Amino acid sequence: MGFKLLSKLLVYLTASIMAIASPLAFSVDSSGEYPTVSEIPVGEVRLYQIADGVWSHIATQSFDGAVYPSNGLIVRDGDELLLIDTAWGAKNTAALLAEIEKQIGLPVTRAVSTHFHDDRVGGVDVLRAAGVATYASPSTRRLAEVEGNEIPTHSLEGLSSSGDAVRFGPVELFYPGAAHSTDNLIVYVPSASVLYGGCAIYELSRTSAGNVADADLAEWPTSIERIQQHYPEAQFVIPGHGLPGGLDLLKHTTNVVKAHTNRSVVE
Results as ranks from 00 to 15, higher is better:
Gly105Arg: 11
Pro41Leu: 10
Ala213Thr: 11
Ser27Pro: 13
Asn211Val: 09
Ala130Thr: 10
Tyr34Met: 10
His252Asp: 03
Lys258Arg: 13
Gly65Asn: 12
Lys8Ala: 14
Thr86Ser: 04
Gly158Val: 04
Arg120Lys: 03
His241Asn: 03
Pro107Asp: 08
Phe3Asn: 14
Met18Gln: 15
Thr114His: 02
Thr134Val: 04
Ala144Glu: 01
Val11Glu: 08
Ile17Asn: 09
Ile227Ala: 05
Glu267His: 12
His230Leu: 08
Ser208Leu: 11
Gln61Val: 15
Leu96Thr: 00
Ala130His: 14
Pro190Ala: 09
Leu81Ile: 11
Arg167Ile: 12
Ala178Ser: 10
Asn262Phe: 10
Val212Lys: 05
Ile238Asn: 04
Ser113Cys: 06
Ala200Lys: 03
Trp88Glu: 00
Thr140Cys: 04
Leu24Phe: 14
Ile50Asp: 01
Gly78Met: 08
Gly197Trp: 02
Gly78Lys: 08
Ala213Pro: 12
Ile17Tyr: 12
Val67Cys: 07
Ser223Asp: 02
Asp29His: 10
Thr14Ser: 10
Ala234Leu: 05
Leu247Ser: 13
Ser160Gly: 13
Ser31Met: 09
Ile201Glu: 02
Leu6Ala: 14
Ile74Cys: 03
Thr134Asp: 00
Thr222Ile: 11
Ile84Ser: 03
Asp52Trp: 09
Asp77Phe: 07
Tyr34Pro: 08
Glu99Met: 14
Arg110Leu: 08
Glu147Phe: 15
Ile186Met: 06
His252Val: 01
Leu204Glu: 13
Ala165Met: 15
Val257Ser: 01
Thr109Pro: 06
Asn92Tyr: 04
Arg142Ser: 13
Ala111Asp: 03
Leu185Phe: 05
Gln235Ala: 10
Ser160Pro: 07
Val166Arg: 10
His57Arg: 04
Glu80Ile: 07
Gln229Pro: 05
Thr86Cys: 02
Thr109Asn: 12
Leu249Arg: 01
Asp119Gly: 05
Ser264Gly: 13
Ala144Cys: 14
Leu24Glu: 13
Leu173Arg: 03
Glu39Asn: 14
Val187Leu: 03
Glu150Pro: 05
His230Gln: 13
Leu195Ser: 00
Glu101Asp: 14
Ala215Ser: 10
Ala136Cys: 06
Pro170Gly: 06
Glu203Asp: 07
Val265Trp: 11
Ser16Cys: 15
Val265Tyr: 12
Arg167Glu: 12
Gly122Asp: 09
Asp85His: 05
Leu156Ser: 03
Ser38Lys: 07
Tyr68Leu: 12
Asn149Tyr: 09
Gly131Gln: 07
Lys102Val: 13
Leu159Lys: 02
Val146Asp: 14
Ala165Thr: 13
Gly163Pro: 02
Tyr188Cys: 04
Ile100Asp: 02
Ala133Ser: 11
Gly123Phe: 02
Val171Thr: 05
Tyr34Cys: 06
Asn262Trp: 10
Ala95His: 15
Gln103Phe: 15
Glu267Pro: 13
Ala209Lys: 08
Asp52Cys: 06
Phe3Gly: 11
Val112Phe: 07
Leu83Phe: 03
Asp125Ile: 05
Ala19Arg: 13
Pro170Val: 06
Glu145Ala: 14
Ile74Ser: 04
Gly242Cys: 06
Glu44Gly: 15
Leu96Gln: 02
Ala15Gly: 09
Pro35Gln: 08
Ile100Thr: 07
Ser161Tyr: 12
Tyr202Ile: 15
Gly148Arg: 08
Leu13Met: 14
Tyr196Cys: 05
Asp118Phe: 06
Leu47Pro: 08
Phe63Pro: 06
Ser7Val: 10
Gly122Lys: 08
His260Asn: 10
Val108Ser: 01
Ser62Trp: 07
Leu10Val: 14
Pro176Glu: 00
Ser155Met: 12
Thr182Asp: 13
Gly163His: 05
Thr140Gln: 03
Arg167Trp: 11
Tyr135Arg: 00
Glu233His: 13
Gln103Ile: 13
Leu24Ile: 15
Ser7Ala: 09
Gln103Met: 14
Ala200Gln: 00
Pro69Leu: 15
Gln49Trp: 10
Ala136Trp: 03
Tyr188Arg: 00
Pro190Asp: 08
Val45His: 03
Ala144Pro: 04
Asn255Glu: 14
Thr14Gln: 09
Arg110Asp: 02
Leu13Ile: 15
Gly210Leu: 06
Pro41Cys: 06
Ser70Arg: 01
Leu156His: 05
Ser70Gly: 04
His260Met: 06
Pro35Ala: 08
Leu10Gly: 13
Gly122Trp: 07
Pro23Val: 11
Pro170Gln: 06
Val45Tyr: 02
Gly240Tyr: 02
Arg167Gly: 10
Val126Gln: 06
Ala179Glu: 05
Leu82Trp: 05
Ile58Gln: 06
Ala19Trp: 15
Ala165Ser: 15
Val146Arg: 14
Pro107Tyr: 07
Gly158Gln: 08
Ala130Met: 12
Gly43Asp: 09
Ser223Leu: 01
Gly131Tyr: 05
Arg263His: 12
Leu159Gln: 00
Ala179Gln: 02
Asn255Ile: 10
Ala178Phe: 06
Leu195Val: 05
Val146Gly: 13
Leu96Glu: 00
Thr140Tyr: 05
Gly105Ser: 12
Arg120Asn: 03
Leu247Ile: 14
Leu5Trp: 14
Lys102Pro: 06
Phe26Gln: 14
Gly240Glu: 05
Leu24Ala: 12
Ala87Gln: 00
Phe116Val: 04
Glu150Asn: 05
Lys8Tyr: 15
Ser161Glu: 14
Thr261Leu: 13
Leu6Thr: 08
Lys8Leu: 07
Ser38Tyr: 12
Tyr68Ser: 09
Pro232Asp: 07
Leu96Asp: 00
His115Cys: 00
Thr207Cys: 06
Gly210Lys: 06
Thr109Cys: 06
Leu185Asn: 04
Leu13Asn: 08
Ser193Cys: 05
Ala51Gly: 09
Gly72Lys: 03
Phe236Thr: 10
Val237Phe: 04
Asp29Arg: 11
Arg110Trp: 09
Pro35Ile: 08
Val194Leu: 09
Asp183Glu: 03
Thr182Met: 13
Val126His: 07
Leu195Ala: 00
Ala259Gly: 13
Gly122Pro: 05
Arg263Trp: 10
Leu96Asn: 01
Val194Trp: 01
Leu97Phe: 03
Gly89Glu: 01
Ile227Lys: 01
Val256Tyr: 02
Ala259Val: 10
Val171Met: 04
Gln229Thr: 12
Ser62His: 07
Ile224His: 01
His260Glu: 14
Lys91Gln: 15
Lys8Trp: 15
Asp216Ser: 09
Asp248Ile: 07
Arg226Gly: 04
Ile17Arg: 09
Leu106Arg: 10
